[in-house]
Design a protein around this nucleic acid. Structure first.
Lengths: 211, 211
DNA sequence: GTCTATAGATTGATAGAC
DNA sequence: GTCTATCAATCTATAGAC
């Protein structure tokens, strides 16, 4: 991991270890020794371990959210132009597909997605809020879209289902598409592409279910 | 928390803090001082912090899984007697409803369910495997039931959907039914009973979706 | 079984030379 | 910006008195 500056290398290492070992189970020493940086450089560049986590999150989540927001807005404005409600499928794809493309874009991005998925079920509020704050506008936009797509369903039911969706997606995200159990007694798992198709179908049917 | 023996008090305290603060973020001192026990008593009764986690899990998960297994088996044998496939809904209820009843049975049980939900997305294998080992037989049984209920769907697709289900349920479990965001810009959340109904509908539709 | 005391290791953070 | 060295706090675990 040497061909980049220290600050970036620390971000990369922290991203990897926070995702794979957990935030509280990762020491700054483990990060710096992984990427060949000095322990003191973490505090020089970031100030504290908490601030390092914040930086890890913001580096990737801000641009990713911009893409997702743009795609969702595109679906909404197109629907308005056509004078038809947006489809749930289009909204779902606008939310999920950029995440997946992003996840495939680099090994670090994959760890990052895993970290995000995991952090939504983080009990420590300090850690969890890092994410929630950045995701809230997107969440709100998606809810608005769902209300337009499924006007016959009450808003608070859609809100609950949107949270179910977040649960489903974040779980797939944090397992990184890997199977739960690796056991010969189970059927062989789907390839990634098919799994995503199935995820879309599962979530789509769930969101659209009758009240 | 005094009216019980030390061992039980430690289990109660560990359950609460592991669920609310995370395993790696909870010290044995925090547990013993919460329940008024001596630090050394943890190692006397359990041997190590890892073993304490194991004990916390087994205390509740073994009996809970027995109930869930019995209910699923009941659905399967009844279907076999009637010479009809089991319904997905019956299987889903057999899996989810005992969990909820259990969760409502005591405050500690609620923390425990939250801990289980969270631990499924635990990156640390040592911690995660504690749960997976105990859940595997139930998971296998449920998969078998789904194969009978939805024979037109390939087994590996059902396996994937079952994992989506685990994601959905564990997420609801670990948030304890509480809402994601507490924000006045969002519609007011559902009461718990309605939320469970919606969870069932969401998961049912997802599992039964066309291939 | 419960306690005090402490070992032994690890942690996040910092001071100060270069 | 990068390094060495170290502080002060915390951690799990254990030895040994009672």
């Amino acid at each position: 991991m040497p061909p980049s500056d220290t600050k970036t290398r620390i971000l990369d290492g922290a991203e990897r270890l926070f995702a794979r070992e957990g935030f509280h189970n990762t020491s700054l020493r483990a990060i710096t020794s992984l990427v060949g940086a000095n322990l003191a450089s973490v505090n020089y560049h970031f100030g504290s371990k908490d601030a390092l986590l914040q930086a890890v999150i913001e580096r990737r989540l801000l641009p990713l959210n911009q893409i997702r927001e743009a795609k969702i807005k595109e679906v909404l404005t197109r629907a308005r132009e056509d004078n038809t409600p947006p489809t749930v499928e289009a909204l779902l794809r606008a939310f999920i597909e950029p995440t997946l493309e992003f996840s495939d874009s680099s090994p670090g991005a994959r760890d990052f997605i895993s970290l995000v998925g995991r952090s939504l079920s983080e009990p420590d509020e300090t850690v969890r809020n890092c994410f929630l704050v950045l995701i809230f506008p997107l969440f709100q936009l998606l809810l608005k879209g769902l209300c337009e797509a499924l006007p016959h369903l009450p808003q608070n039911i859609l809100l609950a289902r949107l949270q179910f969706l977040m649960g489903t997606v974040s779980y797939v995200m944090c397992t990184g598409g890997r199977s739960f159990f690796s056991n010969t007694e189970l059927p062989s798992p789907l390839d990634q592409k098919t799994q995503i198709q199935q995820l879309l179908k599962y979530a789509l049917a769930g969101l659209e279910a009758a009240e």
